[in-house]
């Protein structure tokens, strides 16, 4: 790690990875009416996780990503099923209150946001898993 070329990436990552994580949540939350949403946010989050592992393979995500993707599916499904309990049709949007968040502004809370969070989890888990598996394979080939 004394080679300055090899210390560039870790140094940059210390700044970039948290920024990307925050950005991904920002994209998730603004997504209902503006460009963004669970899918794009999930991709950004996945790239942050992959970047972190790229710098230091020991820092691979601790939880099983496949299990996480299953949990994400269940979250999305829960948001779709919730209206059934209020006597409405499947997937009908239920809206609660509003909160104000810095940088995002007014955020309407409701089942569509929960659905987006489910998508966010699934996309993060699946995209990160794909890239990490490919990375691990190319690493074993290099060695």
């Amino acid at each position: 790690m004394n080679d300055p070329r090899q210390s560039m990436l870790p140094a940059a990552c210390r700044l970039v990875v948290p920024t990307m994580a925050v950005l991904s949540v920002y994209l998730l939350l603004r997504g209902h009416n503006l460009p963004g949403g669970g899918f794009i946010g999930g991709l950004v989050m996945a790239s942050a996780l992959v970047l972190r592992t790229m710098v230091d393979p020991k820092r691979e995500p601790k939880i099983d990503l496949i299990t996480l993707s299953g949990a994400g599916l269940l979250v999305a499904l829960a948001s779709a099923a919730m209206p059934l309990f209020t006597g409405r049709t499947f997937f009908t949007g239920l809206w609660g209150g509003e909160i104000w968040l810095p940088a995002i502004g007014k955020l309407k809370l409701g089942t569509p946001l929960l659905f987006d969070i489910g998508v966010f989890i699934v996309v993060t888990a699946v995209a990160a898993k794909l890239l990490l598996v490919l990375m691990a394979q190319s690493r074993t080939r290099d060695n």
């Binding site: 496949i66 299990t67 993707s69 299953g70 949990a71 599916l73 269940l74 499904l77 049709t89």
Partner: peptide
């Protein structure tokens, strides 16, 4: 009972999610 015809989609999706979590 309109939700009835959504169940053939919901039930496998729910099960797939659970089974992904139960992979081990």
């Amino acid at each position: 009972d309109p939700p009835l015809i959504a169940l053939p989609l919901v039930l496998p999706l729910l099960t797939a999610g659970i089974l992904l979590c139960l992979r081990h």
